[in-house]
């Protein structure tokens, strides 16, 4: 498991890939990235800017950008869209109260010119929690079936148990490689 393995699967076709991880604050974006790197996830602070995970090997690069999701930071998201090869949208599946906000943010992302045709992975995160909605319910709330202009998938996952993380990221990297 891990990002290093992803880089290796990318290497055959790619020189560089930029993956952007977005979603509401508290969705689990930073925890997912730390978990993918086998790091401690017990002391993560709310992100007040960006977290970059950069991998370089033999001239091949994978850069993953996790941008803070608090309302005050969201207006800055657009500064990070350019040259994005893959989008990860993380949803807290246990937070029904904020689902509407989560849908609205996704809708406005999908309308962005700079993110046009960019493949998207939706992580239905926090599946370890008892009252989490399952991936199908999240899919219908987010109206994913109506997306026609890009390749997308939804993956149930938990950053705590790591279930689903690698599968989701592998799908995205593979999709990016095939698209170019």
């Amino acid at each position: 498991m891990g990002l290093l393995k992803l880089l290796r699967s990318l290497k055959k076709n790619e020189k560089e890939a930029r993956i952007l991880v977005l979603g509401l604050d508290n969705a689990g974006k930073t925890t997912i990235l730390k978990a993918l790197s086998e790091e401690d996830i017990s002391t993560i602070m709310p992100t007040q800017g960006f977290n970059i995970k950069a991998l370089t090997q033999d001239g091949f690069k994978l850069n993953v950008w996790d941008i803070g999701g608090q309302k005050a930071i969201r207006p800055y998201w657009k500064n990070y869209y350019e040259n994005t090869d893959g989008l990860v949208y993380v949803v807290d599946s246990s937070d029904e109260v904020r689902l509407k906000e989560c849908v609205e943010e996704l809708q406005s992302l999908l309308a962005e010119e700079n993110l046009k045709n960019v493949p998207m992975l939706v992580f239905a995160n926090k599946q370890d929690l008892q009252f989490a909605l399952d991936a199908e319910e999240i899919m219908s709330h987010l109206q994913l079936m109506e997306i026609k202009d890009r390749t997308w998938t939804i993956q149930a996952c938990s950053a705590v148990t790591k279930e689903g993380l690698q599968e989701g990221m592998e799908w995205l990297v593979k999709t990016i490689s095939e698209k170019k």
Partner: peptide
């Protein structure tokens, strides 16, 4: 070399580079 591009005012940011 690493290009960050935009930095948000009042931000705390991290850059984690894996070196082989």
């Amino acid at each position: 070399y690493f290009r960050f591009g935009f930095v948000i005012p009042g931000s705390t940011n991290s850059w984690d580079q894996v070196i082989y």
